[in-house]
């Protein structure tokens, strides 16, 4: 009887311990469940594994450390969007309906733009970040006279902005910088120089924007590297020589990589959309949905509760109501509508 009791107690104890251990185990990231060959070329992966076996674990870089460095060519990148949609259908649908869903033809054959300034390599930074070539391989001629045509008509329908422009597939393996540093770390690691690949990024939980600051980021074409939002620089924008108040939301750093002011960071220059006037200090994401960029319901989030004038702002003549309105929601001030505004509020 005692023996049976002891046995049962031991079994229950073992079960409790194992339950605790398994409960403490971190949840695996969703993408780690995917087969690498879903995105990467299966032959390439096989080749790499063979190489790793031949060189031995100490000499070869770890698979996890080079996963990001195994490049997908542009065709594979374009096809990737459909694969993302297998699981992220709503986000893909929203993106497809947004202003970010532009094609190479829409980006590079824009007459109005090209007459003003010629297509150039720098355009690819935001409009064709995964393209395997230079501006001249995409559009011809590279001048302001035109007429412009795609260098290869097959490229016309390619997406300028894809899921991977702002999201990384291996979030659990974010290392900055990736392969070179990882290899370098391994090489320089001695007793005196401990490995430092986990370089200090601000803890995402400590940033405004929370965990999303690691989910979103920007693929920098020049470096061929993905920068999560918490590693991107926070913008500083000036108006009349004075710094504007900007949102602390770290996610706006992603927007600013493309919707950026000119080199001197003056508000309103280049593609800058910095909020000034009555909306100064708000985050882009206070109004814009992340994938659809939709703003239709945004005004009602704050107005009329925080409105000073009690007007139904959704009916006001702003860009939220009509895109052609001269009262741009990004720049509007009280004096745009009110002729007499107390000096303190101007």
């Amino acid at each position: 009887m005692m023996k049976a009791l002891l046995k049962t107690t031991m079994l229950a104890g073992a079960w409790a311990v194992s339950a605790l251990v398994f409960a403490a185990e971190p949840k695996l990231p969703a993408h780690s469940q995917l087969d690498c060959a879903k995105c990467h070329d299966a032959a390439l992966i096989e080749k790499f594994k063979q190489l790793q076996q031949q060189l031995g674990k100490d000499a070869a870089p770890g698979w996890d450390r080079v996963a990001e460095a195994i490049p997908l060519n542009e065709a594979a990148m374009q096809a990737l969007g459909a694969k993302c949609a297998d699981c992220h259908a709503k986000q893909a649908k929203d993106l497809a309906a947004s202003g970010h869903a532009m094609t190479y033809a829409q980006s590079f054959l824009n007459r109005e733009h090209n007459r003003m300034e010629p297509p150039m390599d720098d355009c690819l930074r935001c409009h064709a970040m995964f393209f395997d070539g230079a501006a001249g391989d995409l559009v011809k001629p590279l001048d302001t006279r035109g007429p412009w045509r795609m260098a290869d008509e097959k490229l016309a329908g390619h997406r300028s902005i894809m899921c991977v422009s702002c999201h990384q597939i291996h979030p659990e393996r974010w290392l900055s910088p990736p392969s070179v540093a990882a290899v370098s770390d391994r090489r320089t690691a001695t007793e005196d120089t401990p490995r430092r690949s986990e370089t200090a990024a601000t803890e995402p939980s400590k940033l405004v924007g929370g965990a999303a600051t690691r989910k979103a980021g920007f693929f920098d074409r020049r470096e061929h590297q993905f920068f999560p939002a918490d590693r991107l620089p926070h913008p500083k924008v000036f108006k009349d020589g004075k710094p504007l108040k900007l949102s602390d939301d770290a996610r706006i750093r992603v927007c600013y990589q493309c919707h950026a002011p000119g080199a001197a960071h003056h508000a309103g220059t280049s593609d800058d959309r910095t909020l000034r006037g009555v909306h100064e200090g708000m985050s882009c994401l206070d109004c814009h949905s992340t994938h659809s960029l939709d703003t239709r319901a945004a005004c009602a989030q704050c107005h009329p509760a925080s409105s000073n004038c009690g007007l139904d702002v959704t009916r006001m003549d702003t860009t939220a109501r009509a895109k052609a309105s001269k009262h741009d929601i990004h720049t509007m001030t009280c004096t745009d509508c009110h002729a007499k505004v107390p000096k303190a509020r101007q």
Binding site: R222, A260, P261, G262
Partner: peptide, 8 residues
């Protein structure tokens, strides 16, 4: 990466 708009 630098925050810089189009090279106009």
């Amino acid at each position: 990466p630098q925050i810089i708009g189009q090279n106009r």
